[in-house]
Amino acid sequence: MSIEAGGREKAETRPLVDLVARRRREHGQRRLKVQGLRLLVAVVVLGGWQLGAQVSDCNSTGHLCVVDKFFWSQPSDIAQKLWTWLTQGTDLGPIWDQVLVTMEETVGGFIVGSILGVIFGVALGRSRLLADVMGPYIKAANAIPRVVVGALFAISLGLDIKAKIATAAILVFFVVFFNAFQGVREVDRNLVANARILGAHDRQLTTEIIIPSALSWIIASLHTSFGLALVGAVVGELFGATQGLGELIYAAKNNFDAAGVFAGMALLAAIALVAEALITALEDRLIRWRPPVTTETRI
């Protein structure tokens, strides 16, 4: 009996190994294809831009004008600008200082806004009275274009980092708040009943059932809200600053330096991509308990 079973197992192992190898190979090929196509998109867009700028002559009438370098710059100029910033620094000082300042403002605002958003979202989600009382005010506050509050902060908090953190935080707050609130409202009533029967007190109910359950909503909102934190920090700098990427872009704009504006944007985009990767890693850690999605497309 045991010999028979052993024999069958051996016979079945071989095709199984082949199958695994084939899956792995297919997976590798797909990855290569995606990376290749990504590169192609970059080459087409940047190359087209560069080419358009090269063949254009917009200074004299009657000539072909596809991309006006003066307004739209061109990739090679932007790359050169970045290189100058890296090697010789900017008008405001070393480039890394500018990146660091904007990062500090963004991360500071992101953290403050997220924490406040979760606290208020959970509190209002748990208390019906509080939600009913505060509801209209929060909706009204949410309807205001909140970046203008940045102007107020620039007056009240001055030109240093506090005003930018506050601007970023207020943008982040509402997104996280609404998600946390909704997350708490959508908690499975069976799970709450089960926890109460098992003996959970109110605080345990909040920390062990409500918050973990709302966490997938909250984390999903962090993806959007980091981008908003960056917006808040940069807008805050536009309202008045001495350092930072926003200020760098503002200065470039005042000099009609399109390449400088684009170079600043490129740096902001790089920061956003890195942050996105970090948040995805955090998400994977915090929501390990969720079944992996089989057809996963991440953007």
Partner: peptide
């Protein structure tokens, strides 16, 4: 309960240990 009411974010061990911990 009729529906699944084990806590999806807790492991089997944490799920079963929940009651005594709450007590």
């Amino acid at each position: 309960f009729q529906a699944d009411a084990v806590f999806p974010w807790k492991t089997v061990l944490e799920n079963v240990a929940a009651g005594p911990r709450y007590h």
